[in-house]
Design a binder for these strands. Structure first.
Length: 110
DNA sequence: CTGTTGACCAAGG
DNA sequence: ACCTTGGCCAACA
């Protein structure tokens, strides 16, 4: 694995770990919080390599539209279940990002 | 090195 | 509100 990617991943995990329960973020927002907008896909790729027993709350990260990003139905249900357990309300098949979504501003480590 | 793929995003129809 | 298009950047064959 490339060293650069490892650092990127670690920072992604760091941000995701700081997302409070009951809140969600878009991949692009996480990338922006890292100071590198445009890396949204790499954020997704980084989370894709997470084991099931990880301490990173990857379920709090979804698309900017509020839809689940996962393609695997099984894991998608798991993600939705965890979010609802934390108080996140699903409007149909998506989450109201205006209420539960956090902006990158919340993570600007001065 | 080139081409395809992907847990994305924003804009336009 | 839904689908398509172009752009994005790293991993992978």
């Amino acid at each position: 694995m490339r060293a650069v990617a490892e650092v990127f991943k670690q920072r992604v995990y760091e941000i995701v770990r700081d997302i409070p329960a009951g809140r969600v973020m878009g991949y692009g927002h996480v990338a922006a919080a890292l100071g590198q907008p445009g890396m949204a896909r790499q954020v997704g790729w980084s989370l894709a390599g997470l084991p099931d027993d990880t301490d990173v709350p990857w379920h709090r990260v979804l698309r900017s539209s509020g839809h689940l990003a996962l393609q695997d139905v099984v894991r998608g249900v798991l993600q939705r279940g965890r979010l609802e357990a934390e108080g996140v309300v699903f409007s149909g098949d998506r989450v109201d990002m205006a209420r539960f979504g956090l902006g990158p501003e919340a993570f600007l480590t001065c």
